[in-house]
Nucleic acid binder design. Structure first.
Lengths: 225, 225
DNA sequence: GAGATGGTTCGGGCAGCGCCGAACTGTTAC
DNA sequence: GTAACAGTTCGGCGCTGCCCGAACCATCTC
């Protein structure tokens, strides 16, 4: 089997795809949690997780009787996003609970290690109009943006860093790009740490706190509900 | 089946993957050519092609008794590249003929609609050192690069153009990025048109002509063998 | 120690998918 | 017209691979 088909096979199954998509929240999940989420028996989850780990998409970490599993890295997340984003038509919500959850996620959520949804897109727009990021045939961090990253978020780039400072990530609810890469990740981490946003429920949804509304307004001139 | 698994399924088969990978040369192939290439019966090829077309990865065009098929667009090419590039270890050539072909492709080949291989990476490097493209947390065309694109290649951007001017595409032989996007495509088209490179064999391999060596040297200061 | 919980391994059943060959339709060449 | 050629449709076969339940192992609690 050629490598292309090999890699694609990893994502070409209902159960494994469900695992990968929740793991896009960037956190580590236990095998049992994932099994319940995907509605399969623990034995099935165990096998499929092993395949994903062996395929290099996931990494695992054993702690006592728990098996924690997370995405292998930003490349893995980017791959999953790329395949998922290719879907020509977005599916409609099936029932009320799902619809509520989707609404919350549409407003604000994490996408691997950065912010997405209306919030993510609004922040991206704000950074572009403020001149911190240039949207000039591909995204790039401006010198002003680099200063902001250091001053406002306290980030300093390590010497041999490979990961791009900013990367565009297509938002599957807004159908517009939001910010990934180092900038997106640092912003998201800072926002969680300083309680600008809080996780709600067990999914990827987050909500903006009143502190967050103020901070985003002051730091970026972004008006978020 | 969720959209992620749906899309991945399209590439998760030996035959369909083979189709997509040769179609990365950007040309239109007939169903029969693809069947012979993938070593399957015409009937099999016909069915699998229909799946790829229905899935939106390919578009078809009927001409008389021929069915021409090509990649649906740059997004489709980018998706296939992304999945293929994730392969952790590159496979070794199996036999002599394959090895020769791989060597030719490693030197210079097309990758969908732009140039790849050692040639593609060398050109990318040259454009960066000449200041035509900035490699600054993501690639971007500089003002000088924009002028070069107009003067040297005669390209003028249409009003409502959506495709990014330049995009980074990971080279699977060199393991380094080369240039895709409008810039990569225009450069490749010009190179073929002005006979700087010529296609060799029926695959994706190309070879640089003596005219090409001179042109790349003069226009970009790039030394290509 | 016993019991509960999280996870894994194994055997088996079932469905889906990919492949082929044969028959057929439509187009081009003579 | 006939013959050759490109492609499609359909029935059928075989294999893969996904899932489950049962037994088992390891860890933590009491």
């Amino acid at each position: 089997m050629p490598p292309l088909a090999e890699t694609a096979s990893l994502l070409a199954d209902r159960t494994r795809a469900a695992f990968c998509q929740v793991l896009l929240d960037g956190r580590a999940w236990t095998a049992g949690e994932l099994a319940r989420h995907a509605k399969v028996q623990p034995s099935t989850a165990s096998e499929q997780l092993s395949r994903l780990v062996k395929g290099g998409l996931l990494t695992e970490e054993r702690q006592g009787r728990h098996r924690y599993v997370r995405l292998a890295g930003p490349e893995a997340a980017a791959l999953i996003e790329a395949v998922a984003a290719y879907a020509p038509d977005s599916p409609r919500p099936q029932n009320l609970r799902q619809s509520v959850r989707l609404n919350a996620e549409a407003r604000a959520r994490t996408c691997y290690d950065h912010l997405a949804g209306q919030l993510g897109v609004a922040l991206a727009d704000a950074m572009i109009t403020r001149g911190l990021v240039a949207d000039d045939s591909g995204l790039a961090v401006t010198p002003a943006g680099r200063a902001w990253l250091a001053d406002a978020l306290g980030y300093q780039r390590p010497a041999g860093a490979r990961r791009p400072l900013v990367r565009s990530c297509l938002d599957w609810t807004e159908r517009r790009p939001h910010l990934a890469g180092v900038l997106g990740a640092t912003l998201c981490a800072t926002a969680l740490e300083r309680q600008w946003v809080q996780r709600v429920g067990s999914g990827r949804a987050v909500k903006v706190t009143s502190m967050g509304v103020q901070a985003f307004e002051e730091l970026l001139g972004a008006k978020v509900s």
